[in-house]
Amino acid sequence: MDKTRPTSPFGKPMLILAWLSLLGLLYLYFDDKLEQQFNPNQQPDAVGSELVLQQNQRGHYVVSGQLNQMPVTLMLDTGATTTSIPAHLAESLGLQAGAPFPVSTANGTVTVYRTQIETLKIGALTLYNLDASLNPGQHDDTILLGMNALRHLELVQRGQTLTIRK
């Protein structure tokens, strides 16, 4: 007596679809967790004109903001003289590449292009008409917020938090 069950032609494809769905959901879950670790300030805490940022796992202050009314990720970089924007973001942020000039970075000298930021918003803080550079050597989407922007702000670091006031 043969005790094999008849198999449905949909059984194997449905099993594969279920596994792919599970893998997709796991990817989305862990991708969000990794983004939270890199940028714990996706919705920064604002108290009036103060902004309180949390340090990420690597000790950096990363925050979500807006550049020319477009959402961006900013990393505060007190070692950068000028705000540095990855060149591949220029078009989507409405930025024009101006005159080229050399800059010294941790990775050596690179040629960047002058540009102008109309508005930069972080929480309740807004800065206007900032010089910046478009850097073809930056391959991620994180904008390095340099001292030309940070000098307009008061920064107070205590423990793993940074309070910013205009």
Score class of each variant (00 low, 15 high):
Val156His: 03
Gly65Asp: 07
Gly59Phe: 06
Lys3Asn: 07
Asn148Leu: 03
Val52Gln: 12
Gln138His: 11
Glu91Gly: 05
Leu25Val: 06
Gly146Asp: 09
Gly159Lys: 00
Ser21Glu: 12
Asn107Leu: 09
Asn41Leu: 00
Leu22Glu: 12
Ser84Cys: 15
Asp45His: 14
Met70Cys: 06
Thr161Ile: 09
Pro86Arg: 07
Met14Phe: 12
Lys33Thr: 15
Ala99Cys: 02
Leu26Trp: 13
Pro102Ala: 10
Gln37Pro: 11
Phe30Gln: 14
Asp2Cys: 02
Gln37Asn: 12
Gln116Asn: 09
Val110Asn: 14
Leu127Val: 07
Leu23Lys: 06
Gln116Ser: 05
Leu150Glu: 14
Met1Lys: 13
Thr83Cys: 01
Gln66Glu: 14
Leu153Pro: 02
Thr83Asp: 04
Asn68Asp: 11
Thr81Arg: 02
Ala46Ser: 14
Ala149Pro: 04
His88Cys: 01
Glu35Lys: 15
Leu26His: 03
Leu120Met: 03
Gly65His: 02
Thr7Val: 12
Gln157Asp: 09
Val110Gly: 04
Val110Leu: 14
Tyr29Asp: 15
Glu154Ala: 14
Ala80Gln: 06
His60Met: 06
Ala124Tyr: 08
Asn41Tyr: 01
Gln42Ile: 04
His139Thr: 15
Thr119Glu: 03
Leu127Gly: 01
Lys12Glu: 11
Gln138Cys: 05
Tyr61Trp: 11
Thr105Trp: 02
Gly79Cys: 05
Lys166Gln: 14
Val110Ile: 11
Asp31Lys: 10
Gly94Trp: 13
Val110Thr: 07
Leu28His: 11
Gln116Leu: 10
Ala106Tyr: 06
Thr163Ser: 10
Leu15Lys: 10
Ala90Gln: 10
Leu76Gly: 00
Thr73Trp: 00
Leu20Val: 08
Leu95Gln: 07
Leu53Met: 01
Leu26Tyr: 02
Gln116Val: 08
Met1Ile: 04
Leu23Met: 05
Val156Cys: 05
Pro86Leu: 08
Glu50Thr: 14
Val47Leu: 02
Phe10Tyr: 09
Thr109Gln: 12
Thr105Pro: 00
Ser104Val: 13
Gly94Pro: 02
Gly11Val: 02
Val52Tyr: 11
Leu155Ile: 03
Pro44Gln: 03
Ala106Thr: 10
Leu127Arg: 00
Gly59Arg: 04
Ile164Cys: 00
Leu144Gly: 00
Ile85Thr: 00
Asn129Ser: 11
Ile143Leu: 11
Gln37Trp: 15
Ile16His: 06
Gln43Trp: 04
Thr109Met: 05
Tyr128Asp: 12
Asp2Ser: 01
